[in-house]
Amino acid sequence: MSQDLYRDITDFAHDTPSWVQLLAEVWTEAGLLLFGVLFLVGWWRARPAGSRAMALAVLAPLGTAFGYVVSELLKSLVDEERPCRAVAGAAASLVACPPHGDWSFPSNHSAIAGAAAVALALAWRRIVWLTVPMALLMAFSRVFVGVHYPHDVAAGLVLGALAAVLFIKLLTGPTRALTDAMRASGSPAPAWLAGPGPAAPAPAVPDHTAPPRRREPMHRRG
Score class of each variant (00 low, 15 high):
L120Y: 08
W44H: 08
L120T: 06
R142V: 03
A184Y: 09
I168N: 07
L162D: 06
G222S: 14
L32V: 11
L137H: 01
P174C: 07
R183Y: 10
V69T: 15
L5M: 03
D79C: 14
P217K: 03
G186W: 12
V70I: 14
L120H: 00
I112H: 10
D79V: 12
L170S: 13
S185D: 09
L38A: 09
A117D: 00
Y6W: 01
C84I: 04
A194C: 07
A210L: 13
L193W: 05
L130V: 11
H109G: 01
S93V: 01
L171D: 10
R125T: 04
A90G: 05
L38Q: 03
A30T: 07
V58H: 06
D8N: 11
W103L: 01
P106V: 02
R126D: 13
T179R: 09
V132M: 01
S187N: 13
L166V: 09
H219I: 10
S51Y: 00
M182L: 11
D8S: 14
A117H: 07
V41I: 15
D4I: 06
P212N: 13
D152A: 01
A117R: 03
L94N: 09
P201L: 11
V205N: 01
L5F: 03
M182E: 08
W43I: 11
A115L: 05
P201T: 00
A191H: 03
P174W: 05
A91H: 10
V95S: 10
R214H: 14
A113V: 01
E25Y: 06
S93I: 02
R220G: 15
L77W: 15
